[in-house]
Nucleic acid binder design. Structure first.
Lengths: 337, 337
DNA sequence: ATGGTTGATGTTACCGATAACTCTAAAGTA
DNA sequence: TACTTTAGAGTTATCGGTAACATCAACCAT
């Protein structure tokens, strides 16, 4: 591996002079600079970032940890974060916790050891608390995305989940539905909790009955098999006339399970959900959803993160951005009665 | 930042002893080991990976660079790579080149500087040649995924694009189509070339006419606006009765553009494509596709990569895995005549 | 002629870890 | 008893850079 010492020897200068050429610091005569640059090209020199980071005490690396890389909500968010990072002159790498606290933990370890300069996290759930406390203890700036973690104070970008849930239920109610079920992510995830709260509130507000039997708490991530959902559908008696899905993944899985049972949406049962489906759904805008501005989650979060990194002394109060959610009515709800 | 020296001082041992405890090397008395561990916990010690990598000359980091993070083909591939890496005890980070050679270049720079141990790449195109040559020159093991790059010899996982294209055209031909158009990614991408070749071959084989007007070469990645596709549709006269799309993204964009023009699939025009749509398409299996085993691309590629890293001396011949593609007939093709 | 600048470059120490070698007291052996 | 072995440490050099200070010749002003 070629080092600055190799360059220095070949160019008959000291290592420090090479370092100065690389970083454009200090004063160097044009002649020396040219000579050093020529030698660097000849030897295909690539600076060793680890050695550099070690002495500089910063890596200039940012990291985005998302909860489900196959979910278009998060990949769109990732594109937003990436664009913001590029625009502000930072490099961004990604990780995927797969809605799994242990995998998240592994990433956190790696990133802490790598001494990344900052971190954007869509936490796997409330159990992320210790990981985030560790980050804080080690003074790694981070911004939470999409999910809060009780006990953690930080910059954060959230969607208005509770209001979204209210809107969905109101929409169903306005279409005459009275037996409204909900399938949701784990309640250890703040967005799932908020959506559940909004669902219950809206039921009350609209004078609709609430029944535990009509609620399934599972995970936001994709399931290996759909039997849990199928059993839930089998348990409900009578079947609800409409289902609220806590996110896009659940919506798709419910529809597939319903179809397997010979039930069709919206003819036999109506369905609404959070988060838009993939762009692929654009070819047939079908499911009525609460759409979130995924790209903005990433973009704004990254701006906040870099702001903290660039002005660490300011230490203003934590910022919380709540992005509005929008009800997009399509064809997955049938009016009843 | 806490270092092994801080630990050493507090525990009344030398730094080396701390290092031995961390790495479980050498001989340490149980008493000393316990004391050091206690102090490490007290001080929340996290090893500095950069310092370690600097002396060990390896980072134990692998990297996957995909071409489009919003494309479910690549995110599924990413899950495969991730699972394989975990199973074999490696950490994996991701990057997204966005089908853009310059962004790819930036990632390559970063990764080279970071001295990652190995790299899985879905290259942005033939222009990736210099980046890959640089990797080779610096002896960074890499495996190509999904796309070849002329001039680069390496382990690689490919789909059988040519055969896939033949199957799609044959299927259309069997359904009576004679005017078959193709929208494709840039021909600087090997998979686009292969698919184009297969398309032309199959036209000949099935005695169908080939016309340049019926072919649009654009990019695989999502477009900011669809006007280019719209103009292409406007140019073709008479309109084809069927379109082959070079990938899933193009298929969706074509369908949207057709719809905007008041044309419907498959009633007015048939459409087939490569790569399955997102799982979200499962709720309405609609587009007839050549499906590729995206997960396997990642899984097998990662296995090959780690194999190279673990046994660098073996240096067997480059391995090339060609995964079969499968025609899945759904409802986007109408029989004509 | 003398001292002060200034531009260009070199020297040394250090970032935080580990490899390779050294040291020392206690145990083992002839 | 004297010598060897060994367990359990410690010392020193090094990985590839950069900060801070040192050096030195050329130029300038008085």
């Amino acid at each position: 591996m070629v080092t600055i010492y190799d360059i220095a020897a070949r160019a008959n200068v000291s290592a420090m002079t090479v370092s100065r050429v690389i970083n454009n610091t200090g004063r160097i005569s044009e002649k020396t600079r040219a000579k050093v640059k020529r030698v660097m090209e000849e030897l295909n020199y690539v600076p060793n970032q680890m050695a550099r980071s070690l002495v500089l005490q910063q890596t200039h690396l940012l990291f985005l940890l998302i909860a489900d890389i196959t979910n278009p909500f998060y990949t769109t968010l990732a594109r937003g974060a990436e664009d913001a990072a590029r625009k502000l002159g930072f490099r961004l790498l990604f990780g995927n916790s797969d809605e799994n606290g242990d995998k998240e933990q592994e990433y956190m370890d790696t990133l802490l050891k790598m001494r990344v300069d900052g971190l954007l996290v869509a936490p796997a759930g409330d159990a992320s608390l210790p990981h985030l406390e560790t980050l804080r203890r080690h003074q790694v700036p981070f911004v939470l995305l999409d999910r809060e973690v009780p006990g953690v104070e930080s910059d954060i970008v959230l969607g208005d989940s509770k209001e979204g849930a209210r809107q969905l239920v109101r929409h169903l109610s306005e279409n005459g539905h009275r037996r409204i079920a909900m399938i949701n992510g784990a309640l250890t995830v703040s967005s799932a909790r908020q959506r559940f709260e909004g669902y219950k509130e809206a039921l009350k507000l609209n004078d609709l009955p609430y029944s535990e039997e009509y609620v399934l708490e599972t995970s936001f991530g994709p399931r290996a098999d759909l039997s849990e959902i199928d059993r839930w559908l089998g348990r409900m008696d009578p079947l609800p006339t409409a289902i609220v899905a806590g996110n896009n993944v659940l919506a798709v899985e419910v529809i597939r399970t319903l179809n397997a049972r010979g039930l069709r949406v919206p003819e036999d049962i109506s369905l609404v959900c959070f988060d838009d489906l993939a762009s692929y759904a654009e070819i047939d805008p079908f499911v009525t959803v609460i759409s979130q501005q995924a790209y903005q989650f990433g973009y704004l979060g990254m701006q906040m993160l870099i702001d903290r990194i660039r002005n660490p002394e300011e230490a203003g109060p934590w910022k919380k951005i709540v992005l509005p959610s929008e009800l997009i009515v399509r064809r997955s709800v049938k009016a009843v009665r």
